[in-house]
Design a protein around this nucleic acid. Structure first.
Lengths: 349, 349
DNA sequence: ACCGCATCTGACAACGTTGTCCAGGCTCTA
DNA sequence: TAGAGCCTGGACAACGTTGTCAGATGCGGT
């Protein structure tokens, strides 16, 4: 990490601007240092009169306790770190918010970082958070090797992985049932008569993407259908390439009559492609998307509950911290198929 | 804020689990404390051989510098706080992400909190961040009185308000042109022949809501139209009441033929109402929404650039920190009208 | 062999807070 | 009125790091 630029030197006072310390407050109130500390922390053993004097000094000076020093002394930061892929992704919004709510209920603040799906950046972020001695970490992993966390785990940093499992270490994990959800979605398409079903998903090195692919394959296999190679597009993720992939599947000599999409971003792009497509092509997407019900046809999706993922993970984190949760587990939350029309279209032409 | 529960006592070691300190590393490497510090901070003046020994000890012990102590000593935390209304709101996702990117470029971490539109909670969050001695604050204010920040500003905490101005203090502000944007949107409807245009927006105590209302009124007045009271719904925000408000406007003896909506959440709800409505009612919404282009008709919006808001604010923050920005200013970013169909419908009925 | 200089290393204080512990003053009782 | 016991207040060390400064070491030149 690059060094921070220094604060403007022209600002008045000491290095924190001119923050008064407890010592200053004590001097002004004419009491001892510890008495101020007692007042600030609402500890017992201070006469109302003394307390009043101290409070007055605090207000007059605009004193605010320095939590850095407090943390150093107490050993807990009352903050937890959340590392996710992209704060701007609508899937992670509710998840972060849920984590934040739980943190807040435990009096902790949330420090937040986006890995941008880059394992190195994930590692860098996580270690920066550890250096700050966050009490716990909620990580949506980008990489697949988390052995670098071993010393931290040993040192007692509570850790929960969400959405994807940790790599090569034994840690708490909260997942959606990607495999089952994808299988259900594809089975739904099969039930509506489709045979040639395309799959467009993210890189299989991402656990969820791999699981969803597996679900797709399982459903197809159970239906006795051999999956042609050009029905699958793996690892494309930017809109332009997704668009091309979808168009290729639809332009093949034996075109697919339905598409299963592996995540919200892919779904959105494919919806756009299908909107301009003459034949009615069925679509089921993994992840719910906003306004999906208002499109025509409405977009049938396999929804996961992002808020529940976040809440569950954060709650487990705090249970680790208070010692009621001792052994790492893998928790899987169910998905829900929401039918809105696009998944119920019959095979066309 | 409630106190954090204590860490499980059964965990081994000292209060940080069993985190080794520089002293431990020094002992193991057989060098002085300061030498370890030098290696960790890549300061010059350490022989390669010594450095190797130290590095070895660091790896063996799994040492990680304690940034709390570092912060205490250095006086800068290399972190900034972001207080917004709701992390889960799709409008704030890109904004947070933009702030985070700028922070990252400056080597700072982002601490994040949602005020849930509650002034007390905003204050509590901001002060908690100040207690942690964040170097700077980006605040999307919920309240309208920020005098409580005066001591902090005086102490040199860089502060930028975004999306809404600060109340009763002189501070840097980055806004979208809510007034102009709303006016443009309403003018657009007027240009397509509408006269009876409804307005549904948030509580006018929220600055942006008030400004957008003002834009609506200005456009109507310029067109010589007297606005009937029942064309306006102010302060409703939950979907059910927005729905009712819209339905009432449409069911009136002289129903509105077009609606201008004051933010993304209201727009989404109104889109739902209009989807079930027999007459074609024109709609222009403030804020862009995902998939707006795929609905029929596409939703015409006045888009603000959330990422630009965040980026601009964060950049100004760091310019405050490095001293290149001295006087508070008010920056207004333009909005952009995106026509997609719903705003170009002619008056029906 | 000796000096000077450059290079490398470590002792120590300080950052602002909290925990420990003791002193002094008060009240209450015998 | 003296002694016990309680309540309040304050001195001091410690948390883990970094900045200062002085000491140690080694090397080259005379």
């Amino acid at each position: 990490m690059p060094e921070m630029p220094r604060r403007a030197d022209h600002l008045p006072g000491n290095r924190y601007g001119n923050r008064p310390t407890m010592k200053d407050v004590a001097a002004r109130a004419g009491v001892g240092l510890k008495t101020v500390s007692r007042v600030v922390n609402e500890e017992p053993g201070v006469t109302p009169e003394t307390e009043r004097r101290v409070q007055e000094a605090i207000d007059a000076l605009g004193f605010r306790r320095n939590d850095s020093a407090r943390v150093l002394r107490k050993g807990r930061t009352a903050s937890i770190g959340l590392v996710l892929e992209d704060l701007a992704d609508p899937f992670y919004g509710p998840l972060s918010r849920a984590v934040e709510e739980v943190a807040r209920a435990h009096g902790a603040l949330l420090i937040n970082g986006s890995s941008a799906e880059d394992p190195d950046r994930e590692r860098e972020l996580v270690l920066a958070l550890c250096a700050r001695r966050v009490d716990g970490l909620v990580v949506i992993p980008a990489g697949d090797d988390h052995r670098y966390l071993e010393p931290e785990l040993k040192a007692g940093v509570a850790t929960v992985f969400v959405d994807r499992p940790a790599g090569r270490i034994d840690a708490d994990v909260v997942l959606s049932d990607s495999f089952g959800g994808a299988r259900d979605g594809v089975v739904h398409l099969l039930a509506h008569g489709h045979r040639r079903i395309g799959f467009i998903g993210d890189m299989p090195r991402i656990h969820t993407a791999a699981e969803r692919l597996r679900g797709y394959r399982a459903a197809m296999e159970d239906a006795g259908i051999r999956v042609a190679d050009d029905w699958m597009s793996l690892g494309v993720t930017d809109p332009e390439r997704v668009r091309r992939a979808a168009e290729e599947m639809l332009a093949a000599p034996e075109p697919v009559t339905a598409i299963f999409t592996g995540n919200n971003r892919v779904t959105v792009t494919v919806v756009r492609v299908l909107a301009g497509h003459p034949r009615g092509v069925a679509l089921v997407g993994f992840d719910d998307i906003e306004l999906a019900d208002l499109l025509s046809p409405g977009v049938t999706v396999v929804a996961q509950d992002a808020a529940a993922l976040g809440r569950t993970a954060a709650e487990r984190l705090f249970r680790q911290l208070d010692g009621t949760l001792l052994t790492p587990e893998r928790v899987e939350l169910p998905t829900r198929l929401i039918t809105r029309g696009s998944g119920e279209l019959p095979p066309a032409g």
